[in-house]
């Protein structure tokens, strides 16, 4: 079993900011828009270095999405930045018609996703965004797991021709992936091989899945750990290959159970390889104020929850 370590914790949004800053230097077509959250989205450096390619739109997210769609006409690659709630639910129709249906090359970059937004509470803690975005035809949905991976994903999506939803967050989490990784959209990352259970995680739950795998090993359970950074298109082959070996699966995500990664995995398995599955996700509930750690514990998104789900699914094999 591979042992993962990290030297520091960093926020994924800062990975986005650094990735965007690099794109500012390397890709003259990249432009960025923000709806009054430049600091929160870590877009300061891009703005400072590329003032003519940065558009502050104010607190007007619908207009931001429309302007982004228009900017593509003539070859620009717009990256929009605001909180995940205002990047999706608030502007769903604008994304649906002006971006997705119109096939525009817009990158919707969303921070503060999920419960780990913390104290601001449920109004801002969107747990439905992955579902909203993955339902849109041809929308690519990416949820990287740490700072390095978010940076790599940000750079990678500029090269992808089509609409993308890139989801990241506010808290500092272990930064354990390779700083020089190549990011392949739609390609799962096999973190640890195992034989008893497949644990498929995305975003902030990936590190918790690694921790769970270590604890399960101490209990004599061999867990295969997969990092799904791209929820759509899903890496069907990687999942089917693993699950055909382990014959049971736990999915883990900071999102509603309805509409998230777990749903996508269940749909795949029900069609090709019916398999017992347990879901570590928020169960049809809004969040609330609290620290990120308190919330992840209260809503069942912790390492222990992955371990418990594993024990449960093993009994169903």
């Amino acid at each position: 079993m591979k042992k993962y370590t990290y030297t520091e914790k960093k926020d994924t949004r800062s990975g986005f900011g650094v990735g965007l800053q690099e794109l500012g230097k390397t890709n003259p077509n990249v432009v960025a828009l923000c709806a009054d959250l430049i600091g929160s989205l870590k877009m300061d450096a891009f703005k400072a270095e590329n003032p003519e390619r940065f558009f502050q739109v104010g607190i007007a997210e619908a207009n931001m999405i429309g302007i982004a769609a228009g900017l593509t006409i003539g070859g620009k690659i717009p990256f929009t930045g605001t909180f995940a709630n205002f990047s999706t639910g608030r502007v769903y129709d604008q994304i649906r018609q002006s971006v997705a249906y119109s096939g525009k090359n817009v990158k919707i970059c969303a921070s503060h996703a999920g419960l780990t937004l913390g104290e601001d509470g449920a109004t801002h803690q969107i747990l439905e965004d992955i579902g909203l975005m993955k339902m849109l035809p041809h929308m690519c949905v990416i949820n990287p797991c740490d700072y390095n991976q978010t940076k790599a994903a940000t750079i990678a999506i500029a090269e992808y021709d089509g609409p993308v939803y890139l989801r990241f967050g506010r808290p500092s989490v272990p930064n354990f992936t390779d700083a020089n990784q190549s990011f392949e959209i739609g390609k799962a990352v096999l973190l640890n091989e195992g034989t008893d259970v497949t644990i498929i995680a995305t975003g902030h739950l990936v590190w918790k899945a690694i921790e769970a795998g270590e604890k399960l090993a101490e209990q004599g359970i061999s867990a295969e750990i997969i990092n799904i950074h791209t929820i759509k298109p899903l890496d069907n082959d990687a999942i089917l290959t693993s699950v055909s070996k382990t014959r049971c699966v736990v999915t883990a995500e900071e999102h509603q159970m309805h509409g998230g990664l777990g749903d996508s995995v269940a749909q795949l398995l029900s069609r090709h390889l019916p398999t017992p599955q347990e879901f570590v996700a928020v169960n049809d509930s809004f969040g609330e104020s609290g620290t990120p750690d308190e919330l992840m514990s209260k809503y069942g998104l912790d390492t222990i929850d992955i371990i418990n789900a594993t024990h449960k699914v093993l009994k169903r094999k």
Binding site: F55, A62, N63, M64, I65, G66, I67, A68, A69, G70, L71, T72, I73, G74, G75, K76, P78, D93, Q94, R96, Q97, S98, Y101, S102, K104
Partner: peptide, 19 residues
């Protein structure tokens, strides 16, 4: 651009004007 759901075209036009 696709249109039909109203109110979106001015934003799109502004984006195209900026480009």
């Amino acid at each position: 651009i696709a249109s039909g759901s109203l109110g979106q075209g001015m934003s799109v036009a502004i984006g195209a004007a900026l480009t």
